[in-house]
Simulated assay, not measured.
Amino acid sequence: MPDPAIAADTKPWRKPDAVPFISVQGLIKRFDDFTAVSDVDLDIYKGELFCLLGESGCGKSTLLRMLAGFETPTEGRILIDGEDMARVPPDRRPTNMMFQSYALFPHMSVEKNVAYGLLREGLPKREAYARAGEMLKMVKLEKLARRKPDQLSGGQRQRVALARALVKRPKLLLLDEPLGALDKKLREETQFELIRIQESLGVTFIVVTHDQDEAMTLATRIGVMKDGIIKQIGEPAEIYERPNSRFVSDFIGTVNLFEGKVDAVAPDLMRIETAELGPVLLPPQPGLTRGQQVWGAVRPERFALSRRKPDSAHNVWRGVIEDLGYIGHMTQYRIRLENGRLIRASQSNRLRDEDPISWDEPVWISVQPAAFRVLTE
């Protein structure tokens, strides 16, 4: 079994001298006149659980298939553990791929499904089944080894497919929407099971998903893709709190965006003038000039709501609760300001009093300048 090498503990991507396990350099993939992947540079480190996140058709699965060897790059290089993969066929690469469909053999037992690849490679039967048993124990299915796939739940079939992919001991496991066929509750439970297995084995995982919550839960780092381009790479908290563009801020979670022009810049604050909200105070950002167009991005949970006007003279607005949604741990609000702008805010129900703000109530909303992320694109 591979030795654990958990990048989540060491964060090698923060170290300038760290050597990447996977290096993608200038990767391009064209299909006739359509460019599916456009000039991608990407370094992934040993032991990472890296997520490629994006909408359908953004190029994430094509990038995964090039790593696996199922698609040939039009331009660029892929290095895995220092070896150029250009002339290495899929079956000779130190990788394995797990598909959303799982593709289990229905006439074989769970044990035989897991051992099948090893037996095809000529491994002695005794050793193949011993390794299969080891992996089934890892995914907590050893008691179901004799069952057929149609006797298992969706989550159990997913774990059989994972065991089959890992039993060959790849250096890199590629997972294309691995939890997409599961219902919401089971998917959430399986996410943590996947993390446990990955950390136990120390195998590098690359997961393709369109589910933002899934990527935020699973990943050591996330690469957000759009139109074949990786728009931002970062740890989940960085992607959420410090998006580098309107696209990333809007794609990850919920955000309020305010367009304006820089009006004044001081060492500790910047003021922008907006058509919808008037003057807004934000944190300063180097390189901005007066009159430059910018956007202020603020997450719903950063707003404060109250029936009484706050003492602050800045970043305070009055509105009416137009709609709200109670979702257990928090309440989400849609607030219509006096000028017609709709604001999304949320509040933890742990902080709610016995007389919570409700529909059609007038409220004051406020936000600290530090809660804003200033965006220029």
Rank of each mutant, 00 (worst) to 15 (best):
Met1Trp: 06
Met1His: 10
Pro2Leu: 03
Pro2Gln: 02
Asp3Thr: 11
Ala7Asn: 10
Thr10Cys: 01
Asp17Arg: 13
Val19Ile: 12
Ile28Arg: 15
Lys29Val: 12
Asp32Glu: 11
Asp33Arg: 15
Phe34Gly: 00
Thr35Glu: 10
Ser38Met: 04
Asp41Ser: 03
Asp41Gly: 01
Leu42Lys: 13
Lys46Phe: 04
Glu48Arg: 08
Leu49Trp: 09
Leu49Arg: 11
Phe50Pro: 12
Cys51Lys: 11
Leu53Trp: 08
Gly57Met: 06
Gly57Trp: 15
Cys58Met: 04
Ser61Asp: 06
Leu67Cys: 03
Leu67Glu: 07
Ala68Asn: 14
Ile78Pro: 14
Ile80Phe: 09
Ile80Met: 06
Asp81Ala: 02
Asp84Val: 10
Val88Gly: 02
Pro89Lys: 10
Pro90Ala: 00
Arg92Val: 06
Thr95Met: 05
Asn96Glu: 03
Asn96Thr: 08
Phe99Val: 09
Gln100Gly: 00
Ser101Asp: 13
Tyr102His: 06
Tyr102Trp: 09
Phe105His: 08
Phe105Lys: 08
Met108Gln: 10
Ser109Thr: 15
Glu111Cys: 01
Glu111Arg: 14
Lys112Val: 07
Val114Phe: 04
Leu118Arg: 15
Leu118Gln: 11
Arg120Lys: 14
Gly122Gln: 04
Leu123Asp: 08
Arg126Leu: 03
Glu127Thr: 15
Glu127His: 05
Tyr129Phe: 15
Arg131Pro: 08
Gly133Met: 05
Leu136His: 11
Lys148Val: 06
Gln151Trp: 14
Gly155Met: 05
Arg159Ile: 13
Arg159Gly: 00
Ala161Gly: 13
Arg169Trp: 11
Leu174Lys: 14
Leu174Arg: 12
Glu177Leu: 09
Glu177Met: 11
Leu179Arg: 14
Leu182Met: 11
Gln191Asp: 00
Arg196Tyr: 00
Ile197Ala: 01
Gln198Glu: 02
Glu199Gln: 12
Glu199Asn: 03
Val203Ser: 01
Thr204Ala: 01
Ile206Gln: 12
Val208Asn: 08
His210Ile: 12
Gln212Asn: 05
Asp213Pro: 00
Glu214Gly: 01
Thr220Ser: 04
Gly223Trp: 11
Met225Ala: 03
Ile230Trp: 02
Lys231Met: 10
Ala237Phe: 06
Ala237Ser: 08
Ala237Gln: 15
Tyr240Cys: 06
Glu241Leu: 03
Glu241Trp: 10
Arg246Gly: 01
Asn256His: 03
Glu259Arg: 15
Gly260Cys: 03
Lys261Met: 03
Asp263His: 14
Asp268Gly: 00
Asp268Arg: 15
Arg271Leu: 02
Ile272Trp: 03
Glu273Phe: 02
Ala275Gln: 13
Leu277Thr: 01
Val280Gln: 10
Leu281Lys: 13
Pro283Val: 01
Gln285Ser: 02
Gly291Cys: 01
Trp295Met: 07
Gly296Gln: 05
Ala297Cys: 02
Ala297Phe: 13
Arg307Val: 06
Arg307Thr: 09
Lys309Cys: 06
Ser312His: 07
Ala313His: 14
His314Glu: 09
Arg318Thr: 12
Glu322Gln: 14
Glu322Asp: 11
Ile327Cys: 01
His329Ser: 07
Thr331Val: 15
Tyr333Gly: 01
Arg334His: 06
Arg336Trp: 08
Leu337Phe: 07
Glu338Gly: 01
Leu342Asn: 08
Ala345Lys: 13
Ser348Cys: 04
Arg350Gln: 10
Asp360Ile: 05
Asp360Leu: 09
Asp360Trp: 12
Glu361Met: 10
Val363Gly: 00
Val363Phe: 10
Glu377Cys: 00
Glu377His: 12
